[in-house]
Each structure stands twice: as C-alpha cells, then as structure tokens.
Design a protein around this nucleic acid. Structure first.
Lengths: 184, 184, 184, 184
DNA sequence: TATGAATGAGCTTTCATTCAT
DNA sequence: GATGAATGAAAGCTCATTCAT
C-alpha cells in the first residue's frame, strides 16, 4: 500500500507538477480513500519527500556507478559523461520535477545529494592523481557544477546540438581543465 | 500605478518568497485595493512575471555590459568573469528567488534569457576568433551553462572557497577549453 | 455583516448545540459564503466567543441591575431573587448553552463573570451591614454559588415546584444565613 | 474485556479530557484493536457513558453513606458536609471531567443522579423531622443544589478560603435554613 | 477608474465506524 | 471472537478572482 501511494504520488507529480499535486488527487490515482494516506504517511509532504528521495537515491546510485565503472576506462572522462547522461535520461520526468518545479531549498536531501557528488568527484580526481589540479576541493566543486548543469541542461532543455557533440565538447572542457598547468 | 504594483510585488517577493506572495499582500504593500491589481494585470502570475522579467532584463544588460567591456581586455576571460560575479551579486535577493523558489518553467522569459546569453557568448567567441573551437554554437551553449552554474552557485550557495580561487579556476577551465585543440 | 454572522452563530448554537456548530452551518444560516466569515473573524472560536461574550455581558448588566435596584427595597433579598430569575429567564437558550454545552473552562470570561458577581454580592453584603456575617468574602463566595445554582437550576431543569415556592425557600435560606449568629 | 475497555477509557478520559478522547487512543491503552471496541459497545459514547456512570454510581454510594453514617451524629449537618467533601475529593479527576468537560446533557444519568440525591435529602429531612421546613421536596431540592454547588465548587475551583471555613459557613447556611420558621 | 466585500472551489487532515479476513 | 486496514464524510480555513457600487 505504501508502494501504491508512492506510485500514485509519483504519477501525479509527473502529470500535474509539484504545486498542483494534492492529497485527494493522489488518493484518487491510488484508488484509495484520502484517509488511507494518513495511515502510512504523516502528511502530504512526507509522501512527496519519499517519492523524491527514492528518485534521488536511485540517481545517486546510478551516478556513483557511472563514475566507478569508468574510472579506469580508456578515455574515462568521455565514458563517464556518457554514462552520466544515461543515468539522467533514465527518468527525465522526475529530473524535471526536481529541477524545474521543486522549490530549490525544499528538501535538504538535494544539498546532501550534491555534497555526495562533490565527494565522488573529489575522489575521482584524487584517484586520477593528475598533479596539475592543485586545489582539489575547488576543482571538484567547479567540475561538479559544470558537469551537472551541462548534462541536466542537455536532458531537460535539449539544445539543437546532438548528443555526441555535447559529450565531445564537455569532455574537451574537462580534459582541458585537468591538463592545464596549475599555476598560470 | 503599474510601477507601484510592480514595486510592491518585488518587495513582497523578496520578503516573503515566491510561494508566500499573495495578491492581498501585494495590494496592501502598494496601498491599493486587490481589485485594482486586475485593472493592470490579468492575474497574479502576470505581476510576478513582470517583476522577474524586469530583473532578468536588467541582469541581461549588466551581463552584456560585462562581456562587451571586457572583450578586449588583457586577460579578457578573467575580467569578464569578475564583472559577471559583480552583476549577479548586485541583486542576490531576486537571483535567489529566480533560482531557488521559482518553478523553473514559470516564465518562458527564462529560456529567452539564456538564449540571448548564448548569442552573446557565441559572438564573443567569434570575435575572439580562436579558430580552434569549431562548433561555435555548441561551444557557446556549453560555456554558458558552465559559467552560469558556477557563478550563480558561488553567489547563492557560497562554497568554502574564496572568490579569487573561484575566478582562477573558472578562468582556467574556460581558457583550457578555448585553447584545446578542436580535434582530439 | 458582523451582526449577520453573530446572529447566525447564535441561531446555530441554539439549534445545534456547541459541539455541532460548524462554520459551514453558520455560513449557510447567514446566507453568505464560508470565506466571508473569515473577513470578520479570525476563526470559528472567535465567532462563538463573541456570541457568548455578548450574552454574558448582557446578563451581567441585568444581574447588576437586579442587585442595585433592589438593594433598598423592603424585603430586598426576595425581590432581588425575583429580578434575578427574570434576568436568567430572559434568554434561557443561551443560558443552557453556557451551562450545559460549553466546556466549562472554555472561555476565561466565565470565570471573570463569576468573579464580578462575587464582588457584587460582597458589596451588597457590606452595604447591608449585617454585622453577623463575619468573613465577608467567604459568605459572598458561598452565597454566589448557592444563588447561582438554585436559580440556574430552576430555569434549566425546572423542578416540580412553582416559581413562588422557589423564591420563598431561597429567600428563607439566605435570610436564615444572614441572620444567624456568626459564631456557632 | 469490558473491564479492560472501561479502564482504558477512564484513563484516557483523565489524561486527555473528554474532547480529546478518541476510540483509537482507548484501543491502544486497552491493548486491543479498535474493531474490538464495537463488539462490546455500540459506539464511543457508550463507552464513556459507562465509565461516567460507574463513577456516578460509586459517588452516589459514597454520598449515601456520608448521609446515612452521619444522620444521628451530634452536629450531623457539619459532619455530613465533611464526609461529602471527602467523597468528592476521592476522585477529583473524574469529578472535573463530569463538571467541566462533559456537555451537561450528555448522559441522562446525571439527571437521575441528582434525583436520587434529592430523594436522599428528602428522606434525611423527614427523618430529622424538623417540622419547621414545610414543603419538604422544595426544601430538599434547594438544599441539594446548594450543597452540590458549594462543595463541588470548593473541590474544583478552590477559593481562597480554607476548608474549615467552607464547612463552617455551609453548615451555618443549612442550619439557619432548617431552624428558620417555616412561615415568614 | 478604483474599490473591497464577497465569493467558493479547493485545500489538508481527523477519526468514528465497518467488514473481510 | 478478534483484527486492523480501509473508509469517507466532515471539518476549519485560504486566497485568487469577481463585480456591484
């Protein structure tokens, strides 16, 4: 039943958007009575939080996997980006809800999510051991924002540029940064 | 009167946030009656749209200026980024509303805004005439997303990195990209 | 409109009882929309509070008058009691709501009301100057409770005793007390 | 099981008050399922009614005993009042529920209770055989209301008067009434 | 033109009660 | 008998919008 509610919540979220998701709509979609929602969740926010938490957890898993599986690949940057795009394209609907409809500061999980990705990239950088990039955390912070915005932007507001070009250019951007001499 | 309403709307937006901005609060702030709002605007959304459009227009001006004034500077990338940060820091309140509270798809002007910046960067790239960066529109698109997310992120969620380092690293990122050989 | 709402609230209170008085019923009775209630009152409780406050104020006036007008009458105790019964019988409906349906501690005005009557009786006792009743406040406290319960009881749960007998006996009770030697 | 439910109902009534007593809380307290309540009681009201009926029965017993045990005491009025206060103070929690939280007309047993006390006092009066008090039922009715309100008031809203004084004055009130000449 | 009182659909939440197991 | 998940009517309240003045 929890699953039924979450599935209905997810559905309504996708169809109606965050603002227009109401408990009664969720109940109708789940084909249960409004009262039943409150046997499993303390309030409406808890339902949506969990829908989004699940998505974020799943996405985090996929992204972690994208990083880890490609760490040692030839052309690891390019293949990681490709895997990242796959991960984001996996559920573009919820990705859109998170990025376009959710009040950005709504769920503390968002910040946590970004922080974990930060760590992941930091680790990846350290692992690659390219000595040129000195302030590792700063580099990680900038790379995370860059990769996030370019890949998410590609998925949600597809530009008139084909996928391969985006991957090419983003790869070049990152490679250029990693190779560049640390002191200008 | 339109000005009065917009000023009131802006005020309420800053103080209460997007979600908690109600027509009655705007009317009170503007010292007019709620009914009068509807003589000048079709609905609440139109008021907020215009408040935000104005902000976006102003920001666009500032950003254009940041680009144009620094096109020929020595170290033009670095100085443009600095000017860009200045522009964004100029009204962090509304920047935050736009980025953290606004349902992203609320105003179609947002997309338009980004498109215009795209053009600007494209022009800048062409002007610089660095031949290495071949698919100019793709390069512009990626650079816009990168610069936007890094600078806005710096202003709204200040990382534990000082301003100079952010400028340094972002400059290096962009320079590295521009210098990199176009064909890998 | 405030009057209309209060009148409707009073009506519903009388017909349905305190517990079953709902905002929607008040709105229907007042022939206005539920939202309009909230232009004039902050919440449901405020409406009922004011209905009851008005009744209590009016009752207090009547009771004060009953005391004051009869202070110097021949047989002042008896005539005061008669006037008191008149006052209570004036709006037995709301009296019943106050005594039978209102959670006793609901409105702080109740306690205040009783306190003011306490003072009134104390004053009356002092004025009569019967020296026999020594601990004046204690005497007042006991007399207030006695008179209140007997008169209210007569109005709300009419016993098989005629009005005159009740007045006779209550008068005798009070007179006997006032005359009795202070030290037994 | 009935006992378990009643005990739980009593507990919840004391801790949460009449309004906030819900069937689910009773079920939890009784460590049974909400459905089981309806095997033994037709509805929620019936449970609370019975809890209160039991209290009223027990109180009636105690009061009867207070009267009977003191009928032939020296100073029987005073000692009866003392015993009465003891009885009421025995379970001030439920007394408060009955007097302060219960919609007065909730249980018809309340009226019945008062009627039985009426009878008791009538009998006591007849037994005492003081000939002066003529309309016995009227006298009983008035005395019951008086004694009830003074003693209950003392227990539930303790006035700034010590117990002894209250007993003194109430005794004096009653004695004065009983001694007073029947025809004024 | 300006008003602002009035609207009413819509919201989230509660809880006494039922009934298939 | 006992369960407890499911119910759903009803509650109090909000606020963007309208329209008679």
């Amino acid at each position: 039943m929890v699953e039924r509610i979450l599935a209905a919540g997810r559905e309504v979220l996708l169809v109606r958007g965050y603002e227009r998701t109401s408990t009664s709509r969720i109940a109708v979609k789940a084909a249960i009575s409004p009262g039943s929602l409150y046997q499993y969740f303390p309030d409406k926010e808890a339902i949506l939080d969990q829908v989004l938490d699940r998505y974020v957890d799943q996405l985090h898993l996929r992204i972690t996997d994208a990083f880890v599986s490609n760490l040692e690949a030839t052309d690891s940057v390019r293949s990681t980006i490709g895997a990242l795009l796959d991960a984001l394209e996996g559920d573009a609907g919820l990705l859109r809800v998170v990025y376009e409809q959710l009040p950005r500061n709504a769920s503390p999980q968002r910040a946590e999510f970004v922080r974990r990705i930060d760590d992941l990239v930091t680790t990846a950088l350290l692992f690659q051991g390219r000595p040129a990039v000195r302030p590792v955390r700063a580099a990680a912070w900038i790379l995370v924002r860059t990769i996030e915005s370019v890949t998410v932007g590609y998925v949600l507001d597809p530009p008139p540029i084909d996928r391969e070009s985006v991957i090419d250019e983003l790869t070049r951007l990152i490679e250029g940064y990693l190779i560049a001499p640390s002191a200008t």
